[in-house]
Simulated assay, not measured.
Amino acid sequence: MKMALPASEPHQQRKLVPNQGKTRRFDKLNRKMSKLLVYLILLLFSLVFIVPFLWLISGSLKSSTELFADPPIWIPEVLNWSNYKEAFSSFPFLLYLKNTLIVVVFSCVGAVLSNAFIAYGFSRIEWKYRDAVFIVVLATLMLPFQVIMIPLFLLFKDIGWIGTYLPLIVPHFFGNAFFIFLLRQFFKGIPKELSEAAKMDGANEFIVFWKVILPLSKPILATVVIFQFIEAWRDFLGPLIFLSDNSHYTLSLGVQQIMSQNDPRWGLLMAIGVAMTLPIIIIFFFLQRYFIEGITFTGSKG
């Protein structure tokens, strides 16, 4: 009897192996189905954002008859590329594009440099009342632009900046509460041992900030660039208030001029809408990896 027990164990194990294999295959199939379900749900949600843009592209290639047809026509019979030709010739598109790029580029540079420098002081340097001052900075997020619009206009008028790009650029060199918060959270996640090692080698705070912290902060800096690019690119109220000369207008003001006509050409407006949307899509496409990494890393650190 004692000799028979060991001989039966391999037989029992051989019976268990097929069951374990079926369980593993079932678990693997279950994981694949769960992943497929998640992808389908994400696809459905993405259609909410993709469909309006596809309709914008479709409308930019339609004639006026097809644009207001009932039922709606998604694919025009003849691609009406003349809408894009008229979009670039109906108003000084290239001039307004140049003006917009001037504001966008310099405001992005100011946003990156100023907010990174301020956030470094709030996250890596110990000083009295640091947290209290940071709370006051965050409190400015509750102030909408409409509240400070008139005081800013009077201030810039007194110093002679009305009619120039300076009111649209210079304020970005003095920090933004939202960007300061993002950068501070990211900087706090960088090990302090790196800064201490650099200081032991003789580096001062500025060298640590410039040579150690900034090279490690590409994801969050790319995030700031994307947010600031979108804000400056589509800004309408700022240029409307501070710009007085048509030769300084941005694209948003140029589009408003066309929309204010008695009979706006909707196909032309849709073509302009596509032209104004593409740069945002392109910059996000090239910086999306840094953007996702920056947002994820910032949200996971206290």
Rank of each mutant, 00 (worst) to 15 (best):
F153M: 07
F91L: 14
M33T: 14
N204F: 10
M33H: 11
F286V: 14
S89H: 10
L141T: 06
A232Y: 03
V137M: 03
L214S: 02
L278W: 07
L216P: 01
S34K: 15
G273D: 04
A203H: 02
E77S: 13
F181W: 11
L101W: 13
L287R: 10
N99K: 11
P6V: 00
L278E: 07
P264T: 06
M259T: 11
R234C: 11
Y96G: 02
G273I: 06
I125L: 13
P10K: 08
F285I: 08
F286G: 08
N115M: 02
S244N: 15
L95C: 03
A87D: 00
I75M: 14
S58M: 01
V112H: 03
P239E: 08
A111C: 03
A275M: 13
R25E: 08
V78L: 12
L56F: 00
S260W: 07
I180K: 00
L183K: 01
A139N: 05
Q20G: 13
W161F: 09
S244V: 14
L214A: 00
L183S: 00
R130W: 03
F187R: 03
P72M: 12
G202K: 06
M3P: 08
F145Y: 13
V147A: 11
A4H: 09
M276K: 01
D235K: 14
F209I: 07
E126F: 06
P279A: 05
N246C: 01
V105W: 09
I169S: 05
F26S: 15
L269A: 08
D235L: 12
S58R: 06
L95D: 10
E126V: 04
I220S: 04
W266T: 05
N99C: 01
L168C: 04
N80I: 08
P219L: 02
I272S: 01
N83F: 01
S107M: 10
K15E: 10
I75T: 13
F153Q: 04
A119Q: 02
F68N: 06
K85Q: 15
Q13C: 07
K128A: 09
A177G: 07
L95F: 04
L154S: 12
T65A: 07
V274Q: 02
V78W: 11
Q146T: 00
S60V: 03
T65M: 05
P71A: 07
E86Q: 15
N80V: 05
F186Y: 15
E205G: 00
F93A: 07
I230E: 07
S123F: 02
G302K: 12
F49L: 12
Y249Q: 13
V38A: 11
K192H: 14
A271E: 05
F297A: 13
P72N: 10
I226A: 00
L42I: 12
I159W: 05
H172F: 14
I125Y: 05
V212I: 15
K98S: 08
I292K: 04
I159M: 12
A111E: 06
